[in-house]
């Protein structure tokens, strides 16, 4: 036995069948061999990052330095301070700490309420058979075209007439209403993807609609709920128009965005306040966004954006 069956000789790389991913990678490499392409991509990436970085650095610089020199001088002469944040968060003129609470108090119910309502409505449209279902669904879907501007003047007079004006309720209600058409549509799409056999089986076992909704569908919809949740969170937290219209004159209710916009108008050259203030308002959505980006992209691809 001098010869054994030859060990599998390594196949030369170029003869091996490339996997799909590898072929794509090769294609990408050839594409990027063009220096012009890399330069364009790099320029875009820099343009999209530097403005934010500039303001972030500025927010940590002493007030006097900000006035005297550009933020790029920190690379040669670094001096940093937290004074700006201290002033903007707790200073009498700004008091962003309490505005942060306002933003939070506005946002949570304005996310929870419309999602709950939309889930129930989407369930009814998907799994309960009742007369006029299709007509009603199309009507709700079509309401997405209504710009919120069209509703603001009459809504404000309704709030004034009912004595709600200037309270958190107006903002909670408004955001819930504006979110509903898109939320019902998106969640209905997700709900339709669930196999009908699951629902049928539960029905055979004698489960009513409420039980089916909570025990069969809700657990399967968690990713969809997260997707729309992130969406709605960013929308409400970042909103200016609704808050300005319904709470513009109520200091106990106004969220961060309203005051930042106001500061930009009245104290437009006080960059130590503006820079720190802007980042106080940006930080939470940024964290939520980075943490839940996966869900956000999913929601984005499922049904484009609301406006």
């Amino acid at each position: 036995m001098t010869t054994t069956t030859p060990v599998m000789a390594p196949v030369p790389v170029d003869e091996r069948r490339l996997t799909r991913a590898e072929r794509r990678a090769v294609a990408a490499r050839t594409k990027f061999s063009s220096p012009a392409a890399s330069v364009i991509a790099l320029v875009i990436a820099v343009l999209w990052t530097v403005p934010t970085l500039g303001l972030l650095i500025t927010s940590f610089r002493p007030e006097l330095d900000i006035r005297r020199s550009g933020w790029w001088t920190v690379f040669t002469d670094p001096t940093f301070t937290l004074d700006n944040y201290n002033e903007v968060l707790y200073g009498g003129g700004t008091n962003f700490a309490s505005l942060f609470v306002n933003s939070l108090v506005i946002t949570l119910p304005a996310v929870v309420i419309p999602i709950t309502l939309a889930l129930l409505a989407a369930y009814a449209f998907a799994w309960i058979d009742f007369p006029g279902r299709n007509v009603l669904f199309v009507a709700v879907f079509a309401l997405q075209v209504v710009p919120i501007q069209v509703t603001l003047i009459p809504l404000l007079s309704i709030y004034v007439d009912t004595g709600l004006a200037g309270s958190f309720w107006t903002i909670w209600l408004s955001h819930s209403i504006f979110a509903l058409p898109l939320a019902v549509f998106l969640l209905h799409n997700f709900m339709k993807e669930i196999p009908a056999s699951l629902v049928e089986a539960a029905r055979m076992d004698g489960a009513g609609h409420v039980k089916i909704f909570f025990q069969v569908l809700l657990p399967l919809l968690t990713p969809a709920i997260a997707a729309f949740g992130v969406f709605q969170f960013l929308w409400v937290w970042n909103d200016l128009l609704v808050a300005l219209t319904f709470a513009g004159g109520a200091p106990d209710v106004v969220p961060l965005t309203v005051r930042v916009a106001e500061l930009a108008g009245t104290r437009g050259s006080d960059w130590y306040l503006l820079a720190a203030g802007a980042f106080v308002s940006i930080v939470l959505p940024l964290v939520v966004f980075l943490g839940l980006q996966r869900y956000f992209v999913r929601g984005l691809l499922a049904g484009s954006v609301k406006g």
């Binding site: 303001l55 960013l234 930009a264 820079a275 940006i282």
Partner: peptide, 17 residues
């Protein structure tokens, strides 16, 4: 990333630019 930043925040960022 700018998608997470409010238009107000973006406005301030660019006003500084």
């Amino acid at each position: 990333l700018p998608m997470a930043i409010s238009m107000v925040g973006a406005g301030v960022i660019w006003k500084f630019v």
